[in-house]
């Protein structure tokens, strides 16, 4: 799990992109809320995107390796 760590710059870039993705999805849900249930599959697709963004933002599988005491 620990072999490959993205460089800090690369990691920051990915985190930033994931943040933007999340914010866009959140904005969609908060703005289209009362009509969203008529949109069929789209909300579910966006929901599925969230864990993908999560993994992408934290650089694949290396995110379990950090240890520390502060949240």
């Amino acid at each position: 799990m620990n072999q490959e760590h993205p460089s800090p710059a690369r990691k920051g870039w990915r985190l930033g992109l994931a943040l933007i993705g999340f914010l866009a999805i959140a904005a969609f849900f908060l703005l289209s809320e009362h009509r969203a249930h008529a949109l069929g599959i789209l909300p579910f697709v966006l929901l599925l995107l969230c864990p993908l963004l999560h993994l992408f933002g934290h650089g694949g599988h290396d995110h379990e390796s950090g240890k520390g005491d502060r949240p």
Binding site: A18, F22, I25, A26, F29, E33, P43, F44, L46, L47, C50, P51, L53, H54, G57, H58
Partner: peptide, 12 residues
């Protein structure tokens, strides 16, 4: 869906 989106967001 909305709860999950915001909870996953915060978890991330």
């Amino acid at each position: 869906i909305n709860s999950l989106v915001f909870i996953i967001f915060a978890f991330s």
